[in-house]
Design a binder for these strands. Structure first.
Lengths: 342, 342
DNA sequence: CTGAAAGCGCTTACAG
DNA sequence: CTGAAAGCGCTTACAG
């Protein structure tokens, strides 16, 4: 079944393609009678505009691209949900790609999206990404770009983030408040800005409370990916290295849960011997035992807001307005659970 | 910065657009010298074909659509990952939409994807969906369609599924094998085919083992969405209704985990008093305590295979071949953990 | 080996 | 109020 075109409607009604096109778009310079007739015929024939032709004419695809490090991940899948829902409301569809924390893949995917002529790109950076040419290329060819969560401070574009430093400070302060004196930190990989900021928040809380900052208590993830296994490995190493630890602040819930699993296996009591705070408030954190104290990171909100900013830029770009980049900082909160009850 | 077109390359080199186009596609009827020259100029000018124009000419978008009931969901996000990865390998991008288990939304989204002229559609049905006109419409306009996991048996198209009945039978048989005599079932909502099949597998296992099938032990989810809360609610009701239960087979891990949480809260010992088996093998199932026995449902594989089938259909459709619909049944396995140790 | 021309299906400035 | 025409940027059958 070949799809219906404007031409077929025009022929059927014995009028011009121009008039059909205008009638369907409710141009006032077409008579009401003609408009009605065209509308009826179109719906009778189940006419759907050929979006390929529309794209070519309007130079818009009404599609945006999203690049995310991992899809199977509570936080990121919440972000996806927020973006897709918000985009749909405004008539945009979302192409989703997963960079797998790889810089090379991320670069290729940016290229892919640009060559598809998406109307805008949303991205959360791969852990590996330390060079930002590919992002600047997006900006220089005037495709709107919004970064969220895992951002590069140096790139000039709109951003949606949380205050990682503040949140980490809050988490560490909480451990101190309940009496911890020797607090370790699993900071994740070296590069990403949030790892850096969470580490800095941790360090500052220690110093502000006159606790010694001991670099040997900070565990870095070399593999680049934050996993359950990583948590187990670090916890096991920590127990070997340091007998006197009474608190751990961990970069991500999944890693924290891995760490707790290992600690419990080795006979450590949580929170009696060691208190643990995670980060992100994955659903899991509330149902394991002991339940995990963590920082709530609003994924859905982040997704919605990222799309909103992108949408604004798309509109502004269309009107040839100059764009003022915005940096939106979303609120986080400490969710206290059993892993830190004192 | 305006984007480079074939015309600009042609003008720069003083040759025709036709030749440039052919040279870039490595047509053998263009001299090697010209091909090289064009290639170099194109890459110098950073030429990227305008995909809008290409789409219009070739009538292909190289984009497929994916409709899924929920995104924030361990099983489905694994499926997404599999699809996106496989599609990328073949040069396809994936638009993802979430139906929220709503029939109306699902219908709208099908329309949206069709009007975007995607090259094919992958779908896992909403729980609400009981009418399949929208799917038949896809098929009748010759857009390849593959259903996975939550399918409609009656719709004629390719499918990727597991044998829900067999898996549920295995799960129930396991409960019987460890000595359970009164086994309840949380079957989820009424409509979806997998709920029906899992229920039938449960029932058959009971009957084959000469255990009484008691309909009052089957709990249906009215709200339509399978949630943690649903599990708690059903478990609480179950404890009120029946004192003699010693096993529960639950439709989905998330619900099973909710149920276990409630059971434990009410002082029930798992597995000593009641053994529990879930379904799907969410990551969570392995880390809660007691860890949850469940059926492993291969999400990543399902995603990959769904795309592969769709891809095959897209190719066949292009060659005007008749399409033989396939039904691929993936293997599942019982993963025995602490919630059923006897 | 090269290129003029038609056409994919729309939109819109312009003429009448 | 209606329509002829140009054009978006490609691809490809055809002529030379």
């Amino acid at each position: 079944m070949a799809l219906v075109t404007l031409k077929q409607i025009a022929e059927k009604l014995g009028i011009s393609i121009t008039t059909v096109s205008k009638a369907l778009k409710e141009y006032p310079d077409v008579s009401k009678k003609t408009r009605k007739l065209v509308r009826e015929t179109a719906s009778m024939l189940n006419y759907k505009p050929n979006s390929f032709a529309v794209n070519l004419r309007t130079k818009e695809s009404k599609i945006i691209g999203l690049i995310i490090p991992v899809i199977v991940h509570h936080f990121f899948s919440s972000v996806i949900k927020g973006i897709v829902a918000q985009a749909e409301k405004k008539g945009y569809l979302v192409i989703i790609l997963q960079s797998n924390e790889s810089y090379e893949l991320e670069k290729k995917q940016i290229d892919l999206l640009l060559s598809k002529r998406v109307d805008g790109i949303l991205i959360s950076l791969a852990n590996e990404t330390a060079d930002f040419k590919h992002l600047n290329q997006v900006i220089s060819q005037e495709t709107p770009l919004v970064m969220f969560d895992k951002i590069a401070k140096i790139v000039k574009c709109s951003k949606v983030i949380i205050d990682d430093r503040k949140a980490a400070y809050k988490a560490t302060q909480h451990l101190i408040d309940i009496g911890c004196k020797r607090i370790a930190h699993f900071r994740g990989p070296l590069l990403p800005q949030n790892s850096i900021d969470r580490f800095l928040g941790y360090k500052k809380a220690l110093i502000d409370n006159n606790l010694e900052y001991d670099p040997s208590l900070v565990y870095i993830c070399e593999c680049g990916e934050m996993s359950f296994e990583e948590g187990k490995k670090n916890a096991s190493q920590l127990l070997k290295d340091h007998k006197d630890i009474d608190g751990i602040f961990i970069n991500t819930d999944l890693v924290a849960i891995g760490a707790m699993t290992e600690l419990i296996k080795q006979g450590v009591k949580i929170p009696e011997d060691i208190s643990v705070v995670g980060f992100s408030n994955w659903f899991m954190a509330s149902i394991i035992s002991p339940s995990l104290t963590t920082i709530n990171q609003p994924g859905l909100e982040m997704g919605k807001n990222s799309f909103k900013l992108l949408y604004k830029e798309i509109k502004e770009r269309k009107k040839k307005k100059t764009i003022n980049y915005k940096e939106l900082v979303l609120e986080t909160e400490l969710v206290i659970r059993d892993s830190t009850k004192n």
